[in-house]
Computed example of a mutant assay.
Amino acid sequence: MRRYHFDLVDADTVTEASGALLDNDDQAGKVARKLAQEVREQRPELVGHGYAVLVRSDSGEEIWRAAIDRPGGGEGTGAHSAESTKVSLADAFRPKIT
C-alpha cells in the first residue's frame, strides 16, 4: 500500500485535508472523484470557484485532480477499483475554508 494525500486546491491556495493508505493510483483517483462529489453536495458555496481535489503521492507527485465544479470530472489514468474508503474531505476542510 502507498500513502496518498488529498488536498483541496484553487488557483492560489492549497489546503491539505488528509492522507490515506490505498492500494494504487487508480483507487486514489476513485477516492478523489468521490470526495469532489461530497464537497459539491456538502459545500455548495465552493462550486464555481475553480476548486479541485488534488491527489499527491507521498513523494509529492500529482497523481489525480478531480474538479469540484463538474460532476464526474477528473483527470488521471486507468480504471478504478470499486473499493470504498472512509476519507471525508468535505468535513476535513470545513474549519479551514472561509
Results as ranks from 00 to 15, higher is better:
87 V>D: 01
30 K>T: 03
94 R>E: 13
53 V>M: 04
88 S>D: 15
95 P>C: 08
30 K>Y: 06
52 A>E: 04
32 A>N: 07
89 L>A: 10
4 Y>C: 02
77 T>E: 14
96 K>A: 15
96 K>T: 12
92 A>H: 07
93 F>T: 06
47 V>W: 02
88 S>Y: 09
75 E>N: 12
14 V>D: 12
87 V>E: 02
66 A>Q: 00
88 S>M: 06
93 F>K: 01
10 D>Y: 07
92 A>Q: 09
8 L>G: 01
18 S>I: 06
60 G>E: 09
6 F>L: 12
37 Q>C: 09
46 L>N: 05
1 M>S: 15
84 S>M: 07
78 G>F: 01
32 A>L: 05
4 Y>V: 02
60 G>K: 09
52 A>S: 15
28 A>M: 06
30 K>W: 08
56 R>Y: 04
95 P>D: 09
76 G>V: 03
48 G>C: 08
86 K>C: 11
88 S>L: 09
76 G>I: 05
38 E>R: 12
67 A>R: 07
52 A>F: 01
79 A>R: 11
38 E>K: 09
54 L>W: 02
19 G>Y: 05
47 V>P: 10
88 S>W: 08
21 L>N: 13
9 V>Q: 04
45 E>H: 14
81 S>G: 07
90 A>H: 06
31 V>C: 02
26 D>Q: 11
53 V>G: 01
61 E>Y: 07
35 L>I: 03
61 E>M: 13
57 S>H: 12
66 A>Y: 00
8 L>T: 03
